[in-house]
């Protein structure tokens, strides 16, 4: 299994539903090139998909700007795998510390709770004037 100490990939794509499939493909290629385990890939696949679905469903443009781009950055080192997702939409009203798994009969609202459940670190930061950055971290289990 290839295990380069650090590998990174950056890709920008339009913030539309098609980016879910595209990002999943980018992630799978990155995982293969960086020697991620099947478990690491599965967890990131789910968490990244939920973040992107959240952007597709809820992102509002700033002013009258057209629907923006989303930039994805993937990096893997010996200790952690990091994925950041940035958009230029209005700052999302998200409080990850208040996220919990909804009741059995709910038909929505599980996305961020699922991402929290599979990640070792998960943060959302809003930038003044617009823009969101989501940071997804997996700690690598060695031994």
């Amino acid at each position: 299994m290839p295990s380069e100490p650090h590998s990174a990939r950056r890709v920008a794509m339009p913030a539309d539903p098609a980016m879910l499939e595209r990002a999943a493909g980018e992630l799978a290629a990155f995982a293969a090139a960086s020697g991620l385990t099947g478990d690491e890939l599965a967890r990131l696949d789910l968490a990244l998909g939920e973040v992107l679905a959240n952007i597709v469903a809820h992102a509002r443009p700033v002013g009258d700007a057209e629907r923006g781009m989303v930039e994805l950055r993937l990096s893997a080192g010996p200790d952690a795998v990091l994925v950041t997702v940035e958009d230029r939409a209005a700052v999302a009203a998200v409080d990850l510390s208040a996220v919990s798994m909804p009741a059995e009969d709910a038909e929505s609202g599980r996305g961020l709770a699922l991402a929290l459940a599979v990640l070792d670190g998960f943060a959302h930061d809003g930038r003044e004037g617009g823009g969101n950055r989501w940071t997804l971290r997996l700690d690598r289990r060695r031994g």
């Binding site: 696949d45 789910l46 998909g49 009969d105 709910a106 038909e107 929505s108 609202g109 599980r110 996305g111």
Partner: peptide
Amino acid sequence: FIDSSGLGSLIGALK
């Protein structure tokens, strides 16, 4: 692969 939207559709369909 299934995500939260897929789960939501299963729950809606179950109901």
